[in-house]
């Protein structure tokens, strides 16, 4: 049974991959068509505007104390014993905790800077030394060739 389900899932995944490849937005013929068709351009433009609007809604920030305000208002209509309980008190001062990624975001720039420095150092080190090795080898070869040619002429 499980085998049948996993086979079915695999088939569906393949079908959707196939559809995305040959009939999705990525497909060349679709892009070529949209580039020439004003109606499709308009449709895609309108859908893009909605998606943009949705992302604007998602990214609009709210006050840090909004959760506390909402909790205070909601707790205020519950019965007396609940309103005065310890959990209710903690809800009244609750704040939206930023996610781990958001917390790390402020260190992001410095971490990125340090990583870039390390990368440059590594590249420089590897690049310079390998270049130096190359130059040394090429030089040795050239000198060896020169001497072999000239010694050969002298001997001849």
């Amino acid at each position: 049974m499980n085998n049948k389900i996993s086979r079915c899932r695999r088939l569906r995944e393949r079908l959707s991959d196939f559809a995305a490849k040959y009939a999705g937005w990525e497909a060349k013929w679709v892009q070529d068509h949209v580039a020439q068709c004003p109606r499709c351009q308009k449709r895609f433009g309108a859908i893009g505007k909605v998606e943009l609007g949705l992302s604007l809604l998602r990214t609009e920030p709210h006050g840090l104390d909004l959760l506390a305000k909402a909790n205070t208002k909601a707790v205020g209509v519950l019965k007396h014993s609940l309103r005065n309980s310890v959990p209710a008190e903690s809800l009244r001062i609750a704040r939206v905790e930023p996610g781990r990624l958001e917390v790390l975001a402020k260190y992001g720039r410095s971490v990125l800077g340090t990583a870039a420095c390390f990368a440059i150092l590594i590249l420089l080190k590897v690049g310079i030394f390998s270049a130096m090795d190359n130059i040394e080898q090429q030089g040795e070869k050239a000198i060896a060739q020169y001497y072999s040619e000239h010694t050969g002429q002298d001997i001849s």
Binding site: L67, V75, A88, A94
Partner: peptide, 10 residues
Amino acid sequence: VLSTMKEHGA
């Protein structure tokens, strides 16, 4: 109700 508020409030 309070525990639901705490869990899903944010």
